[in-house]
Amino acid sequence: MHLETFAKGDSPLHCLDPRAKLVAAAAYSLVVGLGTTLALGWAALGVALAAVLVARLPLGSVARRLGAVNLFMALLWVMLPLRLVPAPASFWGLSWEWDPAGLRLAGVITLKANAIALVLMALLATSTINDLFHALAHLRVPTKLVQIFLFFYRYLHVLHQEYHRLTQAMRARGFAPGNNLHTYRSYAHLAGVLLVRSYDRAQRVYQAMLCRGYTGTLWLLDHFTWGSRENLFLVISSLIIAALSWLALESSTWT
């Protein structure tokens, strides 16, 4: 399971201090997520595309990821314009009504969701997960939460391999899933074994850590340097976010 596909690179966004990127991504998500106008949606998408180009991400993989985001959007394009209205004459007491305002709403949501997904790719996926954890710890996120994150991410890969071995063993014994109780029981036991192995591994990990003197302190090994590049980035992103918030507040009479 290779997850950090975008983390390697030497673009200006890859080299930035992850703390600056985290702060900017959070502010951008907040402003764009809460806006309701089409103008904001288009502007946000423009900014997001620019960020992806600056990060020099492989556009094919970016498009594939956006595809997953837009599956839910496809549902909204169908469901938002269709509205349930009470109709005493029909059998269910309800009927469908076509509402064109729903199309506009679906459009705004699609623009915003794609824009935010692109910005998260350009800003957050360009750091390694390890760097992001360190950035969180430096930003004074509670140490217990950061430690849970570290254990979670470290053993995710190990347990995924375990899962792979277990399903391979099931296939080797001729298991074929279907709509029957046997399938449900087999999958339940698969999940159960996976959880037992997680639990046992957690105990061994904890014992090994005790041997090495673990007392609950997380020693941060990586320290980031905040230079003029980070200042410049924060100035530019604050200007962009200020412009976007102005668009978000602007009345939407002309959209």
């Binding site: 849970i148 570290l150 254990f151 997680s198 639990y199 957690a202 904890y206």
Partner: peptide, 8 residues
Amino acid sequence: QVGILAAG
């Protein structure tokens, strides 16, 4: 335990 079970 919480981190590793979360991964599980």
